[in-house]
Simulated assay, not measured.
Amino acid sequence: MSARGVFLSFEGADGAGKTTQLRRLAARLRAQGREVVETREPGGAPGAEEIRRLVLEGDPARWSAVTELLLFNAARRDHVERTIAPALARGAVVLCDRFADSSRVYQGVVRGAGAELADSLHALAIGIEPDLTLILDIAPRTGLTRGLARGTAEERFERFGLAFQARVRAAFRDLAAANPARCRLIDAEGDEEAVAARVWAAAAPLFEARA
């Protein structure tokens, strides 16, 4: 690996299996002898985890789209400063469950804050992108059913409903098409092993290039 580490994000609608596939990839990379940092958004650092509760819990109408966007960027800044940047600086692999693309899709496109505002805030406050983004693509009804079945308090976005999840899926597909050099669309239907094989097929060239 090069001196700088590798930064990979997992994206997709709620219930697409991002966390499961991130953990599987982390285990595979650790078996190869790599240092791997597993992290998530919102969260991944103490201050960011406090903001996580504000944006993922409570009534769906709790925040406007622009307020949400600002909160997510505040959490992301703390996350990058305290977790992601130090890990990359020491040459680790960072696997992140969601990153800026979620803000572009959820707040920028689907909630209506505007893609331009999402991009401008990211450029101003964050300034880094993953080396590779894996977008797990799943039928909205399947993802929503999975998300609600978790039974946690973090269901604010699931409670926007099925039509919302369908718009999220469409926006992620558009994002993948617009960023082919960075983004890979992964079919997330089927069993975990089959999806993991698709994830590795997409990710392996990145790690082979940095071996």
Rank of each mutant, 00 (worst) to 15 (best):
M1V: 15
M1E: 15
S2E: 12
A3G: 14
R4A: 13
G5C: 13
V6N: 10
S9T: 09
F10N: 07
E11F: 00
G12S: 12
A13N: 07
D14V: 11
G17W: 01
G17K: 08
K18N: 02
T19K: 05
T19I: 08
Q21N: 05
R24M: 09
R24C: 07
L25Q: 07
L25H: 03
L25K: 05
A26C: 09
L29W: 09
R34D: 13
E35Y: 01
E35N: 02
R40Q: 07
E41Y: 01
E41R: 01
P46F: 06
A48D: 03
E49S: 09
E49D: 14
R53M: 05
V55D: 12
L56K: 07
L56D: 08
D59H: 10
P60S: 15
A61Q: 13
R62Y: 03
R62M: 09
S64C: 07
S64A: 06
S64F: 04
A65H: 10
L69Q: 14
L70T: 11
L71T: 13
L71H: 09
A75E: 07
D78G: 14
D78L: 12
A85H: 10
A87G: 06
R90A: 02
G91V: 08
V93Y: 01
V94L: 06
R98M: 02
D101Y: 01
S102M: 00
S102T: 03
S103F: 02
Y106L: 02
Q107A: 10
V109F: 01
G112P: 02
G112A: 04
A115R: 10
L121T: 13
H122R: 08
E129D: 12
L132N: 11
A139F: 00
P140A: 15
P140Y: 14
T142L: 11
G143Q: 01
L144K: 10
T145D: 07
T145A: 15
G147T: 11
L148V: 10
A149L: 06
R150P: 08
G151C: 06
T152M: 06
A153Q: 06
E154D: 11
E155I: 15
E158W: 02
R159V: 12
G161S: 09
G161H: 07
Q165G: 10
A166T: 13
A166N: 08
R167P: 05
V168I: 14
V168S: 05
A176K: 00
N179I: 03
P180D: 03
C183S: 12
L185P: 00
L185Y: 00
D187E: 05
D187A: 08
G190E: 02
E192A: 14
A194V: 12
A194R: 13
V195T: 08
R198P: 01
R198T: 05
V199K: 00
W200N: 11
A201P: 06
A201V: 11
A202K: 10
A202E: 05
A202T: 10
A204V: 10
R210F: 11
A211Y: 11
